[in-house]
Every structure is written in C-alpha cells, then in structure tokens.
Computed example of a mutant assay.
Amino acid sequence: MLAVDGLEAAYGDSQVLFGIDLRLEEGEAVTLLGRNGMGKTTTIHTIMGLLSPKAGRVVIGGTDLTGAPAYRIAQAGLGLVPEGRQIFPTLSVEENLVATSANRGGGKPRWTLAEVYRFFPRLAERRNNSGKQLSGGEQQMLAIGRALMTNPKLLILDEATEGLAPLIREEIWSVLETLKKEGQSILIVDKNIDALSRFADRHVVIEKGLVVWAGTTADLAADPTVTERYLSV
C-alpha cells in the first residue's frame, strides 16, 4: 500500500527528515510516534505531496510518486485528516462532506453521506450547521468524514485526538477501531499509546527525523524502555 524509503525533507536550509523508512500493507493500521518537533507531521506532509522531498522515494500502490503534487497523491487513494482539522468554516456539515466526495476506485462507493452519518450520528443531527458552529470534537468528526468521502485506500490522520475531551476522544478511537476491523488501511499520528494499541498492528517511532524503533504492538508492550526513552515528556 505504502513504501517510504530514505525520505529526506527540509524547510529551506533547515533539514527535518534524515532518511525515514516506512511500510504499510493493505488493511494494516500503523502509528507514527514521537515527541513534538521530531518530524512526524513533516513526514506526513512529504508523503502527501505538500512538501517536496530532498531525497528518498514514496511508492503508493506500487507506483513511484516521489515529489508528485498533492492532487496526484489524493488520486492515488490517500485521504488526509490534517492536524488542526482545517474544515471549511462557512460551509455546512453536508457541504463540507460533499465538497470532497470522490469514487476513484469505480463501482459502488464504500463511503457515502448515509454511511458517514451512520458512523457519526452527531454530524447527521447538525448537517445544516456551518463548520464554525461545531464543537472541536464535532469538527474532528467532520474532518474524518470528509476524508472518508474521498473513499481512500489509505486514511492518514495527523494528531487525531489532540485537544479533545476524553469522551469525544474515546468516540474517535472507537470509530478508528471499527474502520480497521472493516479493512481500512490507516496511518495515524497520535500520543495515546494505550488507545492506539487497541487496533494498531505496528508502530514506528521517530526521533530527530530518524526512525529509532519499529515493531508490533506486542513488541512495544514487551519493551517499556521504548516509551520511556522516546515518548515520555
């Protein structure tokens, strides 16, 4: 589904990534972990074509799309839930969802308005409200629903539950767990290891733009020093 090899990226003269390697197979959920400022969002932006790589390769579904523009990456089947949600504040909930809808795989789409509303009943209740009238949790649900409406092969979430109330956070985790059980491929950046471990197959830890550890959920649980060394504040 996704193969990243030796990925390097920079903002001007400031290099942030120094050779990221990452693999994600169809149907897998993989996390990207690390403290703030270690390169997680930069990795996502470079994969998504929002930042041009200095070196390395990004292969999606067997096609080399290194340095391709963001629209080509989206067409290849990657759907992004960005950090900070970035919904359209003046559009209604339904307009936000319809604005990004696509069915690039052909056939009957998996994700429709009805399916998104089934997953997020609160969005159905507020379908005519503008984005700016929603709570933070509702906006995050909308951001996820908007990405799902592109019918992505791979759903990428950057800081999926940051700043949300505990009950809303738990609702988001339950949705992602259900998506994983239904076969959705997921790449997620977040800090809640316990919740991530409920559904993630593997974890990749980044420190200062380098992968310093990678392994399964069982591997992570068996080695508490990983959390203490690379993830604790």
Rank of each mutant, 00 (worst) to 15 (best):
M1R: 09
M1G: 08
L2I: 15
L2R: 06
A3T: 15
V4N: 03
D5I: 06
D5Y: 08
L7A: 09
L7Y: 12
D13F: 12
S14Q: 06
Q15D: 04
V16G: 03
L17H: 08
L17K: 00
G19F: 15
G19M: 05
G19D: 12
I20Y: 08
I20W: 03
D21A: 07
R23A: 14
L24I: 11
E28Q: 13
V30R: 15
R35G: 08
R35N: 06
N36V: 01
N36A: 11
G37I: 09
G37N: 13
T41L: 12
T46V: 05
T46P: 04
R57F: 01
V58D: 08
V59S: 14
I60V: 15
I60H: 07
G61H: 05
G62K: 11
D64L: 13
L65S: 04
G67A: 11
Y71P: 10
R72A: 09
A74Y: 01
A74H: 06
L78T: 07
G84L: 15
G84K: 07
Q86I: 07
F88Y: 07
P89F: 07
P89H: 04
P89C: 01
L97C: 00
S101L: 03
N103G: 10
R104A: 09
G105P: 02
G106I: 03
K108N: 07
R110T: 01
R110I: 01
E115L: 06
V116Q: 04
Y117F: 15
Y117L: 01
F120L: 07
E125P: 08
R126A: 07
R126V: 06
N128M: 14
N128I: 15
N129T: 12
L134Q: 07
G136K: 10
Q140F: 10
M141V: 08
L142G: 14
L142Y: 11
L148A: 02
N151F: 11
L155Q: 03
I156L: 11
I156M: 06
D158A: 15
G163K: 04
L164P: 10
I168D: 11
E170C: 05
E171F: 12
W173D: 05
T178I: 01
L179G: 02
K181C: 00
E182Q: 14
G183S: 05
Q184E: 12
Q184Y: 00
S185P: 04
S185I: 10
I188W: 02
I188S: 00
K191G: 04
I193K: 01
D194N: 13
D194H: 12
D194P: 02
L196R: 01
L196N: 00
L196F: 01
A200H: 03
A200S: 12
A200P: 00
D201M: 00
D201E: 04
H203I: 02
V205P: 06
L210D: 09
V212G: 04
W213A: 06
W213G: 07
A214G: 10
A214H: 15
T217N: 05
D219L: 02
L220Q: 01
D223S: 10
T225N: 09
Y230C: 01
L231Q: 09
